[in-house]
């Protein structure tokens, strides 16, 4: 048990060491590529190998210089706000739509071709069109995330409804459940774990897409910040940005996973 835990801590250390080696090697080959040490200083403050005094991106994440110059915390918050707005809207539209498509063959026939065609389209392809419609950076980013998130939610909700055993529906028929009772008492308990799987997928993709979307829309947000730091030749901040995006994505997935487990009757009260 403890031995296993030790392995879980020590083994990633080796990989971490290897990564640092590859990174250092890259830095020695590519001109002005930041070394791990310099990147650490750029993140937490100090004096770099070139003798520059740095404040550290992560030591002062909350600063607000002006509307266009804010700390990394505010960049991340701006991105998260857009993601959750778009994601929330996608849930509001996608779950009921998925329920209807799952319950009615007619609805399935009607919507399925469009889902199949639009699902493989990169959400970024929508971005210019949405920008043209809304003429607003925030609305464009939110609606791009909406387009990103909605497909896995619809598809998994439908899948959840299809997973309702006909036997349960027979029980509902014998008891003469109304359509609403069928949805609440039979279909949702079965479908909810699937819906949460869809939401978890959606949120993961949304977090991937927001970085790219913000690079295109500009303004504020972690995606734009990374792109901006590239233009400012602050290459170390790109690396810091990547690591931050990774950690936040990991946290989002962890939290969604916990919420999904909570609503899954198969896992509840069994852990």
């Amino acid at each position: 048990m403890n031995y296993d835990l030790a392995k879980k801590i020590i083994l990633p250390m080796f990989v971490f060491g290897a990564l640092i080696l590859v990174w250092s090697w890259t830095a020695s080959k590519v001109e002005s590529f930041p070394t791990p040490a310099d990147t650490y200083i750029a993140a937490f403050g100090g004096t770099t190998s070139a003798g520059d005094e740095m404040k550290g991106v992560l030591s002062d994440p909350f600063y607000v210089e002006n509307e266009d110059d804010k700390g990394i915390f505010w960049q991340i918050v701006a991105s998260l706000e857009r993601v959750f707005m778009g994601f929330g809207l996608a849930i509001l539209v996608g779950v009921p739509l998925g329920l209807i498509i799952g319950m009615s063959k007619e609805a399935q026939y009607a919507f399925d071709p469009f889902i199949q065609v639009f699902k493989p389209v990169s959400p970024l392809a929508w971005l210019p069109l949405l920008l043209f419609i809304f003429q607003d950076i925030n609305m464009t980013a939110v609606s791009t995330i909406f387009v990103t998130s909605i497909w896995p939610i619809i598809i998994n909700t439908t899948l959840g409804v299809k997973n309702v055993s006909p036997d349960y529906m027979n029980v509902a028929k014998v008891l003469r459940f109304t359509p609403i009772e069928k949805v609440i008492k039979i279909i949702l308990p079965v479908a909810v774990p699937f819906i949460f799987t869809g939401m978890r997928l959606s949120l993961g993709i949304a977090w991937l897409v927001i970085v790219a979307a913000e690079m295109l829309t500009g303004g504020i947000g972690i995606g734009f910040w990374i792109w901006d730091e590239y233009n400012n030749l602050n290459y170390y901040n790109i690396i810091i940005g990547i690591i931050m995006v990774g950690f936040i994505g990991f946290l989002l997935d962890l939290i969604m996973g916990k919420i999904a487990d909570f609503f899954d009757y198969r896992k509840r009260g069994r852990a």
Partner: peptide, 26 residues
């Protein structure tokens, strides 16, 4: 179908997210 003709299904058809009590209560 209707509740005047109750069915005991071969595969019992209990709702797995409800307890024994809740299945009957429902």
């Amino acid at each position: 179908p209707g509740p005047d003709r109750a069915v005991v299904f071969q595969n019992h058809s209990l709702l797995p997210w409800l307890s024994v009590y809740q299945n009957i209560e429902m």
